[in-house]
Design a protein around this nucleic acid. Structure first.
Length: 834
RNA sequence: GCCGGAAUGGUGGAAUUGGUAGACGCAGCGGACUCAAAAUCCGCCGGUGGCAACACCUUGUGGGUUCAAGUCCCACUUCCGGUACCA
């Protein structure tokens, strides 16, 4: 079959998409005869249309999927929809559409867009998290966790709009005000459900080691710091006149004798009882309100102006017996440590600033060796190591030794002891939203909080509700949902109307892909065992912490609940974090509205060109700013490949990649063959180990250039034609993961019976790479001064001799004495002379 | 603020383990083909000086280590991501 001279992507792409779809070409099942490869990209939120960030993400995955297929792996490559979430409710408010309708119609649109890109998905496994068949299982997980104590309830402050009477997402708070009505946002305590992720803090931290090599080190570092394990001491300060303690966490127990005040977070639970009835109670309350409603990022800022108020109450230093005034401070965070800080102004900068501002005593207890510090003249806290002073029996000890001794004594006296603290907080999953998975509990007046019975799952999210214009969830005002009976006593009860954080759905979807249609259990045990863990996960770096940490937590939790194999500790063996596709320098996102619609590009250039350009434009990890120019280059290249085959009809034969290995003396044949094999080596390495797809494409371009350069010369002989045919087949095979439609079409035109997808990845041969001579660069004092050609395999002495004999080098060495000659075999000679 | 990144020609980027800076593209310029245009093909393309050979400068800024630094170390600048209810 001859190729038409014109490349027409639209028709040939649709042709191959139809063939793939009819054949179920990418459907896969358990096959123990082949190595498995579970590859996933982060599933999209169905925002309406796919954007270039999606395209980039799925192109990266698709190249790997097709590459691994050629390598003989049994590849599982699924896709689904992260379908619950806030934007559906916003759309409901804005357009009056029901969140479900909006979501499902977006899914339909986006599915069609993805199919038009030609991605190699097993579409039978598609999941949408908003379907009861999906979310019922996480309701079950929730109940299991509740039983195990991994889920619990506690009060937590929420953004509250007093005028809309609704909780606001952080995104909905703009400069401290409600995004819809502009009222100042308040903090309101609500009882919320939490996953006890901190129970896994140590394992989550320790297992980061298992991910080294497979995950980018910056992600590991970020997770490490996010968990933020720190060892220190818990110290109890008795409140004066009460039988109650204020507990603090401190990494600086060595400075215990230097405590001159206590600072509590305004949210600390003891605050209420400490200030009740004080003369300045209104002033204190005003301070608390002010601080609580501050911007949460500002409040953590180091440049924050330290503010505080004295409560009038005192506590007692457990060692010195000193009366310690209890203050409230705007820089103390309620959810770190115990929400209380023993303040040592001499040795902590924040405490120092605070003490100076409010005229509180500064007491030095650590001195630099052989020096004395004068509190009155200090300009900043002394935080370096030193020797303990003014510290009773501990005076004279180096401070780190003193810390151990003081912690020991705290234990002996029952006033504290060593403890570990984490920055990581438990995961609040309660959302006062409609479009989410219902939390499966009911509230009974008689029996209290009761879990829904497992056999009564799923708790269906009612779809026949009128969504509210003010952003409030319609669930509390939907009697058919709220009113129920207690699973315990059968009496009247109210359903929980909060739904789950959408991060819950995305924490386990990878496992559901292994048995997505199973309806009597969340997972098929055999499928889990065969497919998990995910071999390669690809997604945006913006998920480096939350989503990835939650998924890791879920994996450990589901393992411990008996759902996952015992030996499965981590969900994702390898992670590729792609950079963002920016537009005009900032993140493309549905909320910002700066989105490039790929459809127009596909219309104009075809999916293959769009795929190729997305991967060629930048390395995967790097952000790139989308521009319309540049795709022209990809388009030209694709056409050039087409034309190369169309023009050389005489060579059209079912030849395979790297098939010509006949001995050749012809320099052109040896040259082209060397380039062919070097390209196979580089492209395999770039895709398979380096994840540098842009350089893989550049290498294929160079091979195409080489074929075009040699074709006139080689086409005249039979041996030359064999060499050209082989190189051209190699081009097709290497390019196939990037531009599969084009390559299948040409492959078929060459007369192959099987699809290119059924080929095996070509093997490069060392002997094809061999050269007779190599060029060595010669430097004098580190500056490039010449090049010499030496026979391949020359020894160090020969290379040095050739370098020193080179005319240009001799000229540069005139009047100088050679001090040293460094020879880097096969590469470079550097002559040091003066 | 804190945590994590990034910065290389006009431009996207390459340089894989400290060893030829600018691969491969885009844009631009010159030429061929054409009545003309598009497409295609050929050539040039970091800066300064020079007719040239060539020399000097150049990887955000300032220091340092080394025979050799885009790459390692220290100190900065700017931009980007995350910061627990956007996903």
């Amino acid at each position: 079959m001859a190729l038409s001279s014109r490349y027409d992507p639209q028709s040939l792409e649709e042709k191959w998409q139809k063939i793939w779809s009819e054949k179920g070409a990418f459907d896969c099942d358990i096959d123990t005869s082949r190595p498995k490869y579970f590859l996933m990209e982060m599933f999209p939120y169905p925002s309406g249309r796919i954007h270039m960030g999606h395209v980039r993400n799925y192109c990266l995955g698709d190249v790997l999927a097709r590459f691994r297929r050629l390598q003989g792996y049994n590849v599982l490559h699924p896709i689904g929809w992260d379908a619950f979430g806030l934007p559906a409710e916003n759309a409901a408010i804005k357009n009056g559409t029901h969140p479900a309708k909006w979501t499902y119609s977006n899914i339909d649109n986006m599915r069609a867009q993805l199919k038009r890109m030609g991605y190699a998905y097993d579409w039978r496994r598609e999941v949408a998290t908003c379907r009861p068949e999906y979310y019922r299982w996480e309701q079950e997980f929730f109940l299991k966790c509740l039983k195990k104590g991994l889920v619990y309830r506690k009060e937590a402050p929420q953004n509250w709009c007093p005028s809309c009477h609704t909780v606001l997402a952080n995104e909905q708070v703009v400069d401290g005000r409600c995004w819809r009505c502009d009222s100042p946002v308040e903090q309101k305590d609500l009882t919320q459900w939490f996953f006890r992720i901190t129970a896994y803090a140590d394992e989550l931290l320790a297992d980061l080691k298992k991910l080294e090599g497979g995950w980018p080190s910056r992600v590991l570092t970020m997770q490490h710091n996010w968990i933020g394990r720190s060892t220190g001491a818990e110290i109890a300060f008795r409140i004066e006149g009460r039988e109650e303690d204020i507990k603090v966490f401190s990494t600086r127990a060595d400075t215990l004798f230097g405590v001159t005040f206590m600072t509590l977070a305004p949210e600390h639970p003891l605050v209420e009882s400490l200030i009740a009835g004080r003369g300045n109670e209104p002033e204190i309350r005003a301070f608390i309100e002010r601080t609580r409603n501050m911007d949460r990022l500002d409040r953590q800022s180091e440049t924050l102006e330290k503010d505080g108020v004295f409560t009038g109450a005192y506590c007692i230093n457990p060692f010195t017996g000193d009366r310690i005034p209890i203050w409230l401070g705007n820089f103390v965070l309620a959810d770190y440590g115990t929400g209380a800080v023993m303040a040592v102004p001499a040795h902590d900068q924040r405490d120092f600033d605070f003490a100076r501002r409010f005229g509180i005593e500064i007491k030095v207890v650590v001195s630099p060796a052989g020096q004395e510090l004068d509190p009155a003249s200090m300009t900043e806290a002394f935080t370096e190591p030193g020797v303990l002073v003014n510290s009773g029996e501990f005076t004279g000890m180096p401070n780190d030794e003193g810390r151990e001794a003081i912690i020991r004594k705290l234990g002996e006296t029952g006033r504290g002891g060593p403890t570990v603290n984490y920055r990581l907080r438990d995961w609040n999953i309660s959302r006062q939203r409609y479009w989410g998975a219902p939390i499966p509990v009911v509230y009974c007046e008689r029996c209290g909080v009761q879990p829904v019975k497992e056999e009564d799952l799923p708790v269906l999210l009612p779809l026949d509700v009128q969504t509210c214009d003010d952003g409030r969830s319609p669930l509390p005002s939907t009697p058919s949902f709220v009113e129920t009976v207690c699973p315990c006593c059968g009496g009247p009860a109210r359903r929980e109307t909060d739904t789950m954080d959408t991060f819950v759905e995305s924490s386990w979807y990878f496992a559901r892909y292994t048995s997505p249609r199973k309806d009597d259990a969340p997972f098929d045990e055999k499928a889990l065992k065969y497919w998990l863990p995910v071999d390669q996960y690809i997604g945006g770096v913006e998920h480096a912490i939350l989503h990835l940490l939650y998924s890791r937590f879920f994996t450990k939790m589901l393992r411990d609940c008996g759902y996952f194999p015992r030996e499965l500790d981590e969900p994702f063996s390898r992670l590729l974090t792609q950079g963002m596709v920016l537009l005009g320098g900032s993140k493309m996102s549905k909320s910002k509205g700066n989105i490039v619609d790929p459809d127009a590009m596909v219309q104009k250039y075809g999916a293959d060109t769009v795929r190729l350009f997305c991967l060629f434009a930048a390395p995967p990890e790097r952000d790139f700013d989308w521009t319309d120019s540049g795709i022209e280059g990809a388009s030209r290249f694709v056409s050039r490949v087409w034309r190369m085959f169309a023009d050389m009809e005489a060579l059209l034969a079912p030849v395979k990649a790297c098939s010509d290995l006949s001995p050749a003396r012809d320099e052109a044949i040896r040259s082209l063959r060397r380039i062919e094999h070097a390209t196979v080596k580089k492209v395999g390495d770039d895709i398979g180990s380096r994840s540098q797809f842009n350089t893989a494409i550049a290498a294929i371009m160079e091979l195409v250039n080489a074929v075009n350069q040699y074709r006139e010369e080689l086409a005249t002989t039979q041996a030359g034609c064999a060499c050209l045919s082989s190189a051209m087949a190699t081009v097709l095979t290497l390019l196939f993961p990037f531009t599969p439609h084009l390559c299948e079409e040409i492959w078929q035109a060459l007369g192959h019976e099987d699809m290119l997808d059924a080929e095996t990845w070509p093997e490069w041969k060392e002997e094809a790479l061999a050269r007779d001579a190599i060029t060595v660069v010669v430097q004098v004092n580190g500056k490039l001064r010449g090049r010499v050609e030496v026979p391949a395999g020359s020894g160090e002495d020969e290379v040095r001799g050739a370098a020193l004999a080179d005319a240009a080098i001799v000229r540069h060495l005139e009047g100088k004495t050679v001090r040293k000659v460094i020879v880097v075999p096969g590469k470079l000679v550097n002559i040091v002379a003066n």
